[in-house]
Amino acid sequence: MRLFNKKKAEIKLRLIDCDYAPEDMEKQLPVSCQLIRMIPGNDRPDYWIAKCDRSIKYGDSTIKYLVLAPRFVGAKIEKGMGTIAVNVAYVIDETITQDTTLNLDKCRYVAICNAIEC
């Protein structure tokens, strides 16, 4: 089991462009991030918490973590996936990194982006 978790932690993504995003986010692209772990939500089991390589400006705040999920049914965020469309949420309460299920009150949905594995 330990090797399996280590493998997942090695996945890095780069958000390269967005179909929908706030203007301030688009100006900060590309954004690279390291997947930390998968976290289930009430509506789907395949959300991911990711740590940004550099902070993202969000109003007066700085964002260090994102919540990502595949945009389309059947798509998966996994090693070897290539390019994928993802829903992106900013983590506004970092205690989410300790939670066992996704609490949507701790993040703010902001974008639909294309991501590539790097």
Results as ranks from 00 to 15, higher is better:
59 G>A: 03
10 E>F: 03
39 I>Q: 04
84 I>M: 13
50 A>T: 09
74 G>H: 02
63 I>S: 11
56 I>G: 00
56 I>E: 00
54 R>E: 15
80 G>A: 13
89 A>H: 15
56 I>N: 01
50 A>C: 09
84 I>Q: 10
35 L>S: 11
59 G>E: 01
75 A>H: 09
2 R>E: 03
34 Q>Y: 02
2 R>W: 06
37 R>P: 08
1 M>N: 01
58 Y>E: 07
87 N>L: 08
44 R>A: 14
110 V>L: 03
112 I>A: 07
4 F>R: 10
11 I>W: 07
16 I>R: 07
65 Y>G: 11
90 Y>W: 12
91 V>Y: 01
100 T>Q: 14
10 E>N: 14
48 W>Q: 09
62 T>A: 13
56 I>V: 09
27 K>T: 14
112 I>M: 14
97 T>Y: 03
79 K>Y: 01
7 K>N: 03
47 Y>F: 11
71 R>G: 02
98 Q>S: 08
33 C>V: 13
45 P>E: 11
47 Y>N: 06
35 L>C: 15
60 D>Y: 07
19 D>K: 11
53 D>G: 07
73 V>C: 08
81 M>A: 12
115 A>I: 15
78 E>A: 08
87 N>K: 08
62 T>E: 14
56 I>P: 00
84 I>P: 08
8 K>M: 10
86 V>W: 01
88 V>F: 09
1 M>S: 12
61 S>R: 07
16 I>C: 04
101 T>V: 15
90 Y>L: 15
97 T>G: 07
69 A>W: 07
